[in-house]
C-alpha cells in the first residue's frame, strides 16, 4: 500500500513537471518574434577558430538590446560575415571592436573571461549541427 502511494506521489510530481516544462517551452517559442529580436537560429563563426556561437535571443529578448545597438556599426546584417575580416580576432575585441564593444568588463563580462560561454569549440559545433560527437575521445566501440 505504502509503495503504491509513493508511486502515485512520484507520478503526480513527474506529470506536473512535464506539463510545466512543456508550457514553458511553448511560451518561449511563441513569444520569440524574429522581426523584433533577430533570427532565432544561432550565428556560428568557424574562423579564425572553430567555433564561436552568438544567440540573438540572449542579447535582444533577454538583455533588451535593439537591432541598431549593433547593426550596422559593429556587425553587418549578413550572418557570419565578420569572420571574413582580417581583424576579427580576440586582440581586436580587447580594443573594443566587435563583441568587445560591450564585452569590456563593465557593460558585459569582459571578452578575456568566460571563454567557453561563446567558444563552443569543435565539439559544441558538431553537437549543434547534429553531427556525431565522434571527437569525444572515448567512444567505446566502433
Amino acid at each position: 500500500m505504502k509503495k503504491i502511494l509513493l508511486f502515485m506521489v512520484l507520478g503526480a510530481f513527474l506529470l506536473t513537471g512535464a506539463i510545466l516544462s512543456a508550457e514553458e517551452k511553448k511560451a518561449a517559442d511563441t513569444d520569440y518574434d524574429e522581426d523584433t529580436y533577430g533570427p532565432e537560429a544561432p550565428i556560428v563563426w568557424t574562423k579564425p577558430v572553430e567555433s564561436v556561437v552568438f544567440q540573438h535571443k540572449t542579447h535582444t529578448m533577454d538583455a533588451g538590446l535593439d537591432c541598431d545597438s549593433c547593426h550596422d556599426d559593429i556587425f553587418v546584417m549578413e550572418a557570419g560575415a565578420a569572420q571574413e575580416n582580417e581583424d576579427f580576432t580576440m586582440a581586436s575585441l580587447y580594443e573594443g571592436n566587435y563583441c568587445g564593444s560591450c564585452h569590456d568588463g563593465s557593460t558585459a563580462f569582459a571578452s578575456d573571461t568566460r571563454c567557453t560561454t561563446c567558444h563552443i569549440g569543435v565539439r559544441g559545433h558538431a553537437r549543434m549541427i547534429g553531427g556525431d560527437s565522434k571527437e569525444g575521445g572515448e567512444e567505446g566501440h566502433h
Binding site: 577558430v49 572553430e50 571563454c115 567557453t116 569549440g121 569543435v122 565539439r123 559544441g124 571527437e135 575521445g137
Partner: peptide
C-alpha cells in the same frame, strides 16, 4: 581551452596519427 582542436590536427599531421586513433584529445 576553447576546443578549436588545432592541437589535435597538428599532432595528427606531425606524428602521422591514423584516422581511428589519437595521441591527444579534448574532453568536455
Amino acid at each position: 581551452c576553447i576546443d578549436c582542436e588545432r592541437c589535435k590536427a597538428a599532432c595528427v599531421e606531425t606524428n602521422s596519427v591514423p584516422e581511428y586513433g589519437f595521441r591527444t584529445t579534448i574532453l568536455e
